[in-house]
Simulated scan of single mutants.
Amino acid sequence: MQGTTILFSEMTPPAGREEEFHAWYDEEHVPLRVGVPGFVSARRYRDTGEGAKGFLAVYEMDAPDVLKSSAYGEVKGKPSALTKDMLANVSGFTRYIGQETAVRRRAEGNAPAALDAPLLYAVWFQVPEDRCADFDAWYEQDHVPLLMESPDWLMVRRFRITDGEPLPYNRLALHYLADRAALSSPAREKARATPWRGRLAAEPWFKGTYSVFEALRPRQKPAR
């Protein structure tokens, strides 16, 4: 169910068509994609930000080349009339491809439960190339271990963004949470107060983008 590459895609339904949007996404859009060889699974989420109306799908894949395959090209290049109409009318569109660079779970044997956590906390950064090594080391050696002191912090996966729009992010961390209380926990406060983080936070590029998503549907997997 968990791959080493993800496709992270957000959309906001056309006004007055949310029910139709969900039916299309659940019954056509996702099944066609997870049916492509190399797709492992997909899960949908709702953006919980104030006033947010968008929805997220995170597709798990074996490798980024899956998106260059003839099977995927067939799906993407021959959309149905409904797909054409829906994609022409959605807003808030994002699409990012990420290759996993690190993963840490609360317990190795608990990977499926962690992957299907009820909340997904996404953290994006655009890190200058000459600062990536320090940023990555801080996240792995300092930040993540302290976050994981919270029992509600089930898993952290980090990705290098290789392509995407609309913003030029190059780092993504997906935090899988059992409860929103993790975001106000002593563990998070501790993780955000270290000297290493303070040094990085003083640099002008250190401006993260943060979103919390609530799981909307059970994970979809290939029928094959």
Rank of each mutant, 00 (worst) to 15 (best):
E50H: 13
L56D: 01
Y72M: 00
S70F: 12
T101S: 15
N89Y: 01
K53L: 12
A111H: 03
R33Q: 09
T94K: 03
V34E: 09
Y25D: 00
A42N: 05
F55T: 03
E60G: 03
Y45C: 03
Y72R: 01
D85G: 05
D116G: 12
R95F: 09
I97N: 01
M86E: 01
A71F: 09
L115P: 00
L82G: 02
G109M: 05
S80L: 06
A88M: 10
E100H: 07
T101P: 04
V34W: 14
G35D: 09
V36H: 15
A23Y: 05
A102N: 11
N89H: 06
S69L: 12
A88V: 08
Y45F: 15
D116L: 00
M86Q: 02
M61K: 07
E27F: 08
E27Y: 11
I97T: 11
V103R: 04
V40G: 01
G38N: 09
I97E: 03
D85M: 09
F39G: 01
R95C: 03
E108N: 10
T101C: 07
A117K: 06
D85A: 15
E50C: 00
G109A: 07
E50T: 13
A107K: 12
D62R: 15
F55H: 15
A52C: 00
D65K: 08
P37W: 11
D65Q: 14
L82Y: 05
S70Y: 08
V30Q: 05
H29C: 05
G35T: 02
E74P: 04
T101W: 11
P31S: 14
A63F: 14
R95V: 02
G109I: 05
P64M: 09
E60L: 08
V90G: 02
T94Y: 09
A52I: 03
G51V: 06
E108L: 06
I97Y: 02
V90F: 07
A107Q: 11
V40W: 08
R105E: 08
A52N: 04
V40F: 06
R106Q: 05
P79F: 12
G49H: 07
P112I: 06
P118Q: 07
A52Q: 04
E60M: 07
K76W: 11
V34D: 12
V75G: 10
P79Y: 13
K68Q: 13
T48L: 15
A42K: 01
V58E: 10
A81G: 09
P79C: 12
T83F: 04
K76C: 03
M86R: 01
M61P: 07
L32N: 15
V103L: 10
Y25Q: 06
V34R: 09
A114L: 02
A63P: 02
V34Q: 09
T94I: 04
W24C: 04
V75M: 12
G54I: 10
I97P: 00
F55G: 00
N89T: 04
E50V: 13
D85E: 14
S91M: 02
P31D: 11
P112M: 09
S80A: 06
A117P: 03
D47S: 08
R44Q: 13
A102C: 00
D85L: 05
I97K: 00
G109H: 11
F39H: 12
A23C: 01
G73L: 11
H22S: 08
G49W: 11
D62I: 08
G109K: 05
E60C: 06
A71D: 15
A52P: 01
E50W: 12
S69H: 14
V40H: 04
K68R: 11
G109P: 03
